[in-house]
Design a protein around this nucleic acid. Structure first.
Lengths: 199, 199
DNA sequence: GGCTCTTCCTAGTAGCCCTAGTTTAAGCCT
DNA sequence: AGGCTTAAACTAGGGCTACTAGGAAGAGCC
């Protein structure tokens, strides 16, 4: 019996869970599997993490932070279409590099509020997106609509791609370029507001 | 002991699973829960469905069929922007009415090929989308790109909405209108192909 | 009525989440 | 250094889940 004390912390448990998620998929991340990976009995994890749902929430926050940092680095010093392309590519690249973590960011949000308060990722991500899109001369409420559309497009493309939804012969990479391109033109030529809105 | 023979079939099991998915979420659809709902022991289900994964695949196919039918009805007799709007609204409405079934359609595809061959939904859905977008004077490979972009946008919006990702004060309904509107203008003014593509 | 077929059952294994209570390693204090 | 405190990790166990194997009992056919 070694019994050398594994030196667990909430962060180490979360990291092990995140790695596991990338390797085998988020919904194969079980307490038992994480414990095995850490060389520990599953009951030991409960000293650091409330339960499985809490662990998944922590993985989601970790991923949000990492993704935000990558995007921030990517768009630093860029503007306009350059910034948009850099943003989109960084977003997609993160999802490719960390598929399990990425899916964790998309779970219906029920994260411990106290935990969320300590993580800058989600809030900062929103700020980044807004400030980047402000360059397109959009004002509220169009700005919010634009943010939502951009998020929809990126998340939709990336998650369909991950689910194997693009089976056609056409290379996905090419479609991606057109997608980001289209997003740019859409933001540039934001449609006038007054059509078909009788209210 | 009643023992009146519940009259199960694969379809009835699938339907029970689909209803359950809409009520409690797809990943709370368990063999035990479906069996309880049908007044049957869980072991009895395995005569009709191979295992849980198979059941989920069947739910996905059921949903694909239903969704396709709704969209087909919605766009029947319409063209151009009318058709696009009807398509998008039917798509979103289905996801609202059947959230569990909808998420089932987005699982990484590992459906029994034989089963898939018998279900017209997925193939027909692709055909519908292609034929509708052909009205926008798009030719390959732009057509495929357009289909992918449209699917990305719709799926992205709907799934972010379902995940509670749109917390801002701005009504989601308004953003949705702008989103579909933007998609239309994007398809109408499809960007020229020759920019930034030096290869 | 007897035969067969399928349906549905009981029984059982193994894995999962999580709790309660116990042992023991690590760090501090004198 | 030896003893105390803290908390890290354990053992034990309950309850739920997926799934398998083999048995009983309805339904239709002769």
């Amino acid at each position: 019996m070694r019994m050398v004390r594994a030196g667990l912390t909430a962060d180490r448990v979360t990291l092990a869970g995140a790695e596991l998620a990338d390797e085998v998929g988020l919904d194969h991340v079980t307490m038992s599997a994480v414990a095995r990976r850490l060389g520990v009995k599953d009951a030991s994890l409960y000293a650091h993490v409330r339960n499985l749902e809490d662990l998944r929430g922590r993985i989601a926050l970790l991923a949000a932070d990492e993704k935000t940092i990558r995007i921030a680095e990517a768009i630093a010093g860029r503007a306009g279409k350059d910034a948009l392309v850099a943003y989109a590519n960084a977003y997609r690249q993160y999802a490719h590099d960390h598929p399990g973590r990425y899916t964790a960011t998309q779970i219906p949000i029920q994260i411990d509020p106290e935990l969320l308060a300590g993580a800058p990722g989600p809030r900062r991500a929103v700020e980044l997106t807004y400030s980047m899109l402000r360059a397109y001369a959009l004002r509220e409420p169009d700005l919010t609509d634009a943010v939502r559309i951009m998020r929809s497009m990126l998340h939709g493309f990336v998650s369909l791609e991950a689910a194997g939804g693009f089976a056609h012969a056409r290379p996905v990479e090419d479609s991606w370029l057109r997608c980001v391109d289209g997003l740019h033109t859409l933001l540039e030529h934001w449609p006038a507001h007054d059509e078909g809105d009788p209210a």
